[in-house]
C-alpha cells in the first residue's frame, strides 16, 4: 500500500539544514494498522504529510498503491489524495461556518450530490452524531468534533487513513472510541497510519514503529 525507499526530507533553517526524515525505508501493507511513535521533532508528522502527498521529500522514492504521487502534477496529486487518502488531525480542522453534514461533504468536492448527503448522514449516525448533524463545530465537544473529522475522512471510502495525533485533544474514553472507529475502518479492509505519543492505539496496531531523528529505530 505504502512504499518508502531512502526517503529524506531536509528543511533549511537559519541554523543550517535539518533532516526531518533521514534515508527512511518503510513498507505498509494493505489492511495494516500502523502506529508511528516518537518524541517531538522526530519526524512523525513530516512522514505522515509526505505519505499524504503534502510534503515533497527531498529525495527517495514514495509510492502509494504503486503510484509515485510526487511524479503527478499538483492537480493530479490533489485528485489522487481526494480519491485515496483520508486525513484526521489533532486539531480536527473542521470548517467553522459549516454544519457537520456540510463539513463531512466537503471531502466529496464541489460536485457533491444528494447521494453524498445521504451517505454523510449515515456516517454521522454511525458515529453517534445523528442528532448533531445540523450543528456547527463550535457547538460540539472535542470528542464529537473528532468523530466528525473521522466521518469526513471516511466519506470518500479511502484506501488509506492518515491520522496525526487524532486523540491529542481527547479524554481517554473519547480517545478509545476514536481509535475504535479507525480500527473498524481497518477491519473493513482499509489501511491506517496513526502518529501518536500515547499508547491508546497500541491495542489496535499490527505494527508500532518508533521514529527518532527521522530514522526508524525499531518496528
Amino acid at each position: 500500500m505504502v512504499h518508502l525507499s531512502k526517503i529524506s526530507k531536509i528543511f533549511q533553517t537559519r541554523r543550517g539544514p535539518v533532516a526531518a526524515l533521514d534515508n527512511l525505508d518503510l513498507d505498509i501493507e494493505p489492511g495494516e494498522f500502523v502506529v508511528i511513535r516518537g518524541h517531538s521533532g522526530s519526524g512523525k508528522t513530516t512522514l505522515l504529510l509526505a505519505i499524504g502527498g503534502m510534503q515533497r521529500p527531498s529525495q527517495g522514492e514514495l509510492l502509494i498503491n504503486g503510484q509515485d504521487i510526487y511524479g503527478l502534477s499538483p492537480q493530479q496529486r490533489s485528485d489522487f489524495r481526494a480519491d485515496n487518502i483520508g486525513f484526521v488531525f489533532q486539531m480536527f480542522y473542521l470548517v467553522p461556518y459549516l454544519n457537520l453534514i456540510d463539513n463531512v461533504m466537503l471531502a466529496t468536492g464541489t460536485r457533491s450530490n444528494h447521494r453524498d448527503q445521504v451517505e454523510a448522514v449515515e456516517l454521522l449516525t454511525r458515529l453517534k452524531l445523528g442528532d448533531r448533524q445540523h450543528h456547527r463545530p463550535a457547538d460540539l465537544s472535542a470528542g464529537e468534533r473528532q468523530r466528525a473529522a473521522i466521518a469526513r475522512a471516511l466519506i470518500n471510502k479511502p484506501k488509506l487513513i492518515l491520522a496525526d495525533e487524532p486523540t491529542g485533544n481527547l479524554d481517554p474514553e473519547n480517545a478509545a472510541e476514536a481509535f475504535g472507529y479507525l480500527a473498524d475502518f481497518q477491519q473493513a479492509g482499509g489501511t491506517v497510519v496513526v502518529v501518536t505519543h500515547g499508547s491508546a492505539a497500541d491495542a489496535h496496531a499490527d505494527r508500532i514503529i518508533h521514529l527518532d531523528h527521522g530514522c526508524i529505530k525499531s518496528a
Binding site: 485528485d79 480542522y93 468536492g109
Partner: peptide
C-alpha cells in the same frame, strides 16, 4: 489559513 490547509488536504486544487 487552516481552512485552506484542510481543503488542500481534502484534495481541493489551487483553482478551487
Amino acid at each position: 489559513r487552516q481552512e485552506i490547509g484542510i481543503l488542500r488536504a481534502l484534495g481541493y486544487g489551487g483553482g478551487k
